[in-house]
Nucleic acid binder design. Sequence first.
DNA 1: TCAAAAACATGATATTGGTCATGTTTTATC
DNA 2: GATAAAACATGACCAATATCATGTTTTTGA
Lengths: 242, 242
Amino acid sequence: MSKRPNISSSKGTGILTDSLLDNVPLLNILGAQDRQRILGELSETRYGKDDFIFREGDPTEYFHIVKEGTVKCVKSTPDGKECTLKMLMPGDLFCCDAAAFDGGCHPGTAQPMGNVSILRMHRKTYFDMLRRSPDAAMEVIKYLGNRLNEAQEKTKILALDRADQRLAALLADLAARNGIKDAQGIRLSMRLTRQDMANMIGATTETVIRIMSRFKRERLVSGTANRLVILNLEKLKAFLSV
Amino acid sequence: MSKRPNISSSKGTGILTDSLLDNVPLLNILGAQDRQRILGELSETRYGKDDFIFREGDPTEYFHIVKEGTVKCVKSTPDGKECTLKMLMPGDLFCCDAAAFDGGCHPGTAQPMGNVSILRMHRKTYFDMLRRSPDAAMEVIKYLGNRLNEAQEKTKILALDRADQRLAALLADLAARNGIKDAQGIRLSMRLTRQDMANMIGATTETVIRIMSRFKRERLVSGTANRLVILNLEKLKAFLSV
DNA sequence: TCAAAAACATGATATTGGTCATGTTTTATC
DNA sequence: GATAAAACATGACCAATATCATGTTTTTGA
């Protein structure tokens, strides 16, 4: 079940200076010298679809940044039910949180949704950086605050909305974050099965399939996993509770 | 509907040095001088049950600390449905988050659950403090990380568990955080109606009443809002999914 | 202490969404 | 391009929970 990752660490090489890192505010905010030093402390690892970056219960030793690809954060129950908490995109930070402080354990699993490239830094280095640079600390506070707000909005939707509303909210959110406008509508840039969506909205795969079939009949969406298109974002948003 | 608060600001008086502030890590971590200066910048306000500390959509100007009492963070829909995201207890921080950064708006409402006393500091002062003191910044990062983990655990429960499991999880959590051991069991220290519980677990009041009736029959809990006692925490925990 | 309001309780019924079963279509892989 | 696996689809049925209605008990406040 758990394949080992394709490790291709590039610590100390020139690879990390490439343009993919230009959209990481946490790194950009550092002075030139600090930035260079920190880049030297980051190591890069590539993972594939069936790897785990870490699993629920593993010790938290590193702070991570998504460089390329999409990573999902999931929690699961002993009987195999799964819930996807968040999809992390390039530039997203993870494990900046408290679990990393007291040598605790990961509260969830981080799993690639395809080929990804992850940068990581030892917690000690990370905490050093935060202590040295008030700008970096403020950036992390800002990032965590946004994550908390997102999580609370999700809580509200789970607590108060019906499955079709939750799905509409998910699709609208993905369209805004990861949508690429094309001739027919807004195409989602990542592969996303009905199962994936079900895990994100707290419903079963069958329920999502039924709702998607309805949305398709109503010309709100089209396509399946590899090519999902939002045809009518406005009408989709009319489902939302607020 | 919205009464004005009972303002009794005590900025600059000796009141803020009282022992209630000894359990606020963010303040304790500061050096003696800084601490004194920051205490001078905090103002205290008292609110009653029907006041609002702030409401969804209000501009975020202040950072807050709960000094006394319990505050609930809620979000609501236009049609009057409500969901309680978090109960804040003495020592808890709020609005340390990103909304406060760019002069944005509060994503939810903060409402006292009885008489409370709240300290607040202007965002400018708060950000100054964080920039000056790496320890304070680390404390806030730690706090936000914990809040994020809590929120994600709540998401998982909402997404995967039945109403009786969600209620059991809530009661177990409250027993651990706010329980006072007494002869019969663990008494919860705050008033908590079936309605309050319903808003916390994403269910209706009737559903919570029915489940509580069942839990009562099974001798897991006893009492109502003003005196809620957990009689058998172990058996209650046996309901949880993990 | 008395009245009004809030909280608690329970039944009947409707709705939503889960479960299980079965079949088709699409995608991935050799 | 054949074949296996994954994803998508749909129906029948059932369980969980919402909704609505009505009544009792407890709490609050004048």
